[in-house]
Design a protein around this nucleic acid. Structure first.
Lengths: 347, 347
DNA sequence: TGTTAGCACTCTAATCAAAAGAGTGCTAAC
DNA sequence: GTTAGCACTCTTTTGATTAGAGTGCTAACA
């Protein structure tokens, strides 16, 4: 029984999905027969529904209930039936810029704003350096015991660390170290920072091997970027608004998944598409999220660009019957705003 | 009817509290009459209970139910009846140090560990500078358009920002600016950085006023430290394990409170006690938290010290019938471990 | 006078049956 | 091919009954 979806079946299916998206209740034939635009009796709808059920676009929770859409139906909807609403989220920027001085404040605000406008849970991950290149290294003596290490990566991502000094070090040595490190390492990515380069640095900084080792360690860990991802979450309680997720068991595992940043860790696997227009929007329906706790959820993600090679991602998590249209357009608006803000700042 | 708690009443009350802490169910007279150590009939217990109810140490949820402790009873328990268990959490340190390289990783780990050992929700706030003094300022040109500002505060707290340059600036000017800023501002707190000091800096750096303004802005905001507090949360779902909090309404408002960092904002008001031994442990029962959403919860907080004048705080949130003994001793152990770790690192 | 056994009473939580409601599938007529 | 009609199924709601836990009070006891 292959997908022979004639025009009427398509219309009916669309009506079922739309209605279910609204109500969250199984949709009966009578409801659809009254649906705007269609003029078909409930009996006919019943026949068509039976066919749609055979094609696995809808299922019945039990014999005497209406139908609900399957993942396959949602996929079809997202791929071919979505209607994007624009111009609805134009004031996002105004709300954002008020005090978006620091990056972390800005991202947290963006998460809050998306969560409250969509009524779903929003997760924003801080930008990650994809092409990890060292732009600038600076070592500074803070006092006699502490050396401040600053590594600036491509895209002006700053990482700093303090090294505790075992032995005294002179200002001249630090100046020398700065020079050696910068000339040897600037512009290099993790891959290019091989044993030869490292040996060269060590050779030129004799007598400071403990410090050099410590600094190289820091640089390595910065480039690997394998620490916990920095994540801003908002609106977790929104999930409780949807009965199909408000079950204690489900909600617990869902919240744990979010708290442990499992979603963000999954994102890392994927390479952001560099398509300016679509903002790398991806829709994951149910099991497509690859996480068991998310099997009753859908997630829409988008990518923002802070600088060439430096991307962050935003995800909105909700029930499978989430308002995909709204979420996608809200995300697109937000991504545009963010891109704009970063563009201004970058120049 | 004032607090005439004779020895027997005290014993009975203690038994009621202990039992309720365990079970979470209203405690009946027969249960207590069988309680280890006491040899009193249930009828007598009933009489005593009636008295205790008059004194507002216990209440009946309804006529034919057992009694549950009031906030007043919990307060009494925490103040005079607690039995601390030690030596139970001695392996915390081992679990912690494994990969506690960075501060944020360490704190997140601490939160996870406390949440999983206590089965309550744990909130850790990143260290805050109480005595905010500038130790060190450094401006560095990253490239022609970007100036990196680093401010190190007392206690080696580092804050950095990037300023976008409108006009070219020479290396000499930056060197001069560094010198001027450091000599003028080092060792100063926000209070001391008055209009005179600022005028002096400006006078000595003619022709760079836009940059000086930007830098001073940054320093001011760093010293004010009024951004969103950095917070690590773990085990929020633990709350769902306790039926009295698992109610949807309550849980939602509780989770929102945590997500919006309201608790941590409350903490800020309070000055950490500098008592090494007690780690500034505070117990808030019900309404003592000052937050409506927390009226069915208790919270125990403790302070860790990262450096003179630089403190962070850890809070454990649970139902009012939380195992105070366990929580307090777990917190104390953890605080000691943290203090030790920072002491090692600081030297 | 303090303690205890006994019992009637109260309130909740669990159980169960019945009824209401929603929706289907099928048949027969159009 | 479409539709009206109806018997049937399954869930949800409702109400009533019951079992259980615990109390307060009275009266007896040491």
């Amino acid at each position: 029984m292959e997908d022979k979806l004639d025009d009427r079946k398509l219309k009916i299916l669309k009506a079922i999905i739309r209605t279910y998206l609204d109500t969250g209740e199984p949709v009966g034939s009578r409801t659809i027969s009254k649906y705007a635009g269609l003029n078909i009796s409930s009996a006919t709808i019943r026949n068509e529904m039976s066919d749609l059920e055979d094609m696995e676009y809808i299922i019945q929770p039990h014999t005497s209930a209406g139908r609900i859409p399957t993942d396959k139906a949602y996929r079809l909807y997202v791929d071919t039936m979505m209607v994007e609403r624009d111009s609805e989220y134009k004031d996002l920027k105004a709300k954002l810029e008020e005090k978006a001085g620091k990056l972390d404040t800005l991202l947290k605000q963006a998460a809050d704003l998306l969560a409250s406008t969509t009524n779903y849970t929003t997760i924003v991950s801080a930008p990650r350096v994809v092409t990890k290149k060292v732009k600038f290294i600076q070592l500074t003596k803070v006092d006699n015991d502490h050396l401040l290490t600053i590594v600036v990566l491509d895209g002006n991502i700053i990482r700093n660390n303090i090294i505790v000094l075992d032995e005294e070090i002179s200002d001249e040595d630090i100046a020398k170290l700065n020079f050696v490190m910068n000339t040897a390492l600037n512009g290099l990515s993790a891959d290019e920072m091989n044993i030869n380069v490292i040996q060269a640095v060590k050779a030129q900084s004799k007598g400071m091997s403990t410090i050099v080792d410590a600094v190289l360690d820091i640089i390595a860990s910065v480039l690997q970027d394998n620490g916990d991802p920095e994540v801003y979450t908002s609106g977790t309680t929104n999930m409780l608004k949807y009965p199909e997720l408000a079950d204690k068991e489900k909600f617990t595992s869902l919240l744990d998944t979010i708290e442990q940043n499992k979603l963000v860790t999954e994102w890392r696997e994927e390479i952001p598409s560099d398509d300016e227009e679509s903002h790398g929007i991806q829709v994951y329906i149910g099991d497509e999220t690859r996480l068991d706790s998310m099997k009753d959820c859908s997630m829409v993600t988008a990518t923002y660009r802070i600088h060439e090679g430096v991307y962050g991602r935003v995800g909105i998590v909700g029930p499978k019957r989430m308002d995909y249209d709204k979420v996608v357009s809200a995300l697109k608006s937000m991504m545009s705003e963010l891109d704009d803000i970063f563009k201004e700042k970058g120049e």
